[in-house]
Amino acid sequence: MIDFALLGELLPLFGEAALRTIALVAAAMAGGLALGFAMNAARETGLRALVGLYWAYTTVWRGVPFLVHLFIVYFGLPSAGVRLDPFDAAALTLAVYSGAYFAEIFRACWQRIPRGQIEAARCMGLTRRQVFWHIACPQALRASLPLVANQTILVMKESALASVITYPELTMTAGKVVSEQFVYVEPYVLLALSYWALAVLINRLGGWLRRYAAL
């Protein structure tokens, strides 16, 4: 039923596609984490405008499907003069999309810090900024690791949509093989295995990071 010879032949092709998926996920993660962190930091200042911005960002960006985000950036922006290639469009959109989720993760972890510690620090004369960087950050970031690892899997899954705007990652590659070679089973088997392998890899990485952070 499964042509293992064909599987072997397709392996390098899928390997390359997997690397592209990884590249996309990595870029999106870097951007998303930075943006999410910045948004949460903005919210922590307590300034009305920034808090409002935080809620607007997280509500709107998480309330719209990622596919629609992609369409707006890849098909919509060109009419406003901004033309991005598939990778840039996908990475940027995924970064800003996942940034909303990371912001919420960071918010949850920040709010889990016992109020007593913050009160103690403020009493002893630490400024809000010092409390943020020296008291809250170390603990909250450590606590956020499992949630971030979990979210990374979700980012990986959303990356599949980049195939719709023709970025040659795993899903698009599988589709190409199917339509060009008229084989159905082997490409999809490889597709499923590739994503599963990536998920395992991400979980391993997460575990390693957690152990490293526990030191």
Partner: peptide, 8 residues
């Protein structure tokens, strides 16, 4: 079903 993309 939780570990692979819905699109796939």
């Amino acid at each position: 079903f939780r570990g692979t993309p819905l699109l796939a």
